[in-house]
Design a protein around this nucleic acid. Sequence first.
DNA 1: CGACCCATTGACAGGAATCAATCTGCGTGG
DNA 2: CCACGCAGATTGATTCCTGTCAATGGGTCG
Lengths: 253, 253
Amino acid sequence: MCRPTMRNTTMLMQKNQVFEHAEMTNETIDAGQSLSALFLISATELVPAGRAICWEGDEAKHLFQLVEGVIRLYRIVGDGRRVITAFQFAGDLIGASLQSDFLFTAEAVTDCKIRRVSRKSFHDEVTRSNALHPSYISLLCHEMTAAHEQMVLLSKKNAEERLCSFIAKLVSRRNPQARQGVLRVPMSRQDIADHLGLTIETVSRTLTKLASRNVVIPEGRHDLRIVNLACLTQLSGDADDFLEESCHRVSLH
Amino acid sequence: MCRPTMRNTTMLMQKNQVFEHAEMTNETIDAGQSLSALFLISATELVPAGRAICWEGDEAKHLFQLVEGVIRLYRIVGDGRRVITAFQFAGDLIGASLQSDFLFTAEAVTDCKIRRVSRKSFHDEVTRSNALHPSYISLLCHEMTAAHEQMVLLSKKNAEERLCSFIAKLVSRRNPQARQGVLRVPMSRQDIADHLGLTIETVSRTLTKLASRNVVIPEGRHDLRIVNLACLTQLSGDADDFLEESCHRVSLH
DNA sequence: CGACCCATTGACAGGAATCAATCTGCGTGG
DNA sequence: CCACGCAGATTGATTCCTGTCAATGGGTCG
């Protein structure tokens, strides 16, 4: 369906796509930037990997800004089933879309640095400043968009499409200390599984399959060599028909 | 697991539960109320069943308030796969969580009455009025909560739990012209399937199974007799452990 | 170096999708 | 008013993907 042979031919297209993705998120980044000024008054706190900064159901007295590291937001349903609704990265705000109680537990995936402000002061600042208002709305809208995309992923995509979507999204969010062509994946297989609505075994098997097709190759537990980004994007299932076509064409000769 | 014999014993509990659900949404209703004043200046439009009022990707020049009827919000992904991200009912606002373009197509499930206002005037009003501001935030937060719940449903629940969750949610939103114990379900099986991430056949089969267990009984295509609400709630998978226990106990003797 | 945790791999089972054949309710037209 | 036709719904047979259970492998940290 999508063979590694297309690699060279579609390289340009890959670049474009990633670039577009990156641009799409500029809005959020801007929104984060202006709002993040509110957090500068407070000192950064260090949060070791595995530690939670807030709990589902607790009163949301504070908002957090993630300065450095990766955080998972999750809910526990029924008997111990965990749903990771989102991962948060450097610059993201946590708790902006909340009114009273936290809808999720936020837990550090890696060692993190965070800043916090009280909900009240945050709210007061945003209400007072007309300049911040659009940033705030923009932020909420973007969270909403992400939630929608996740719903699409969970309701219509198979394991391969889910994993490729996830990896492609990580790629588009270029992380700082990455070697060329190698993606850092800080979260565990279990985290990935709980985020994609799969089991750890299925994630592992799907990764193996992608590796055998030379799309991505695991290098250790937390690194992925991205061999064929065009193929990855196409397999993610939300590529345009045009791209899909071109991918097919290329793979046919 | 959950036999019809518990019917009488748990009747009180059922009532309480429905009531609680109704109360939980009061916040939203209030938010809708104050914001909906903004829509009163515009005339109501009639939208026949099946007609769309906006399209995914179009610039969101207007916001809508649904005065009467039911609307589905959906996205089309890949080749024709449809994901219904939400249904909207009388009083709901459509397009509030948007910045520039519509994330979804909104289409009338039944004949509808709507009002519309321009995004600009809506935005200006909300920005100007400090009173409206919290209502707006509240609305966005509630949409976010609904999105989270849908993610949980899609990633961890099986067909039966999904369908029961869906029906229970419809029940908790008491619709006006309902006969006692009978729930109006305006949407088609295909709509339900596309909302729950299932196929039409699975929805149908699951309904049959629920009917054989005397939980709910279909009466025509668009009505459901709710025979055992406690069981329905328990089967939805997000009941408390306490309730689950009690349900078991009752069904055991 | 060994113990432990995490990840991978394999065998198998089960639930939902798919394909296909009725069936039913509902509107239409004779 | 009834027969007809059609879209939507149900039911059945089968396949396939993913979950589950179980064993093995590998990296990391003491």
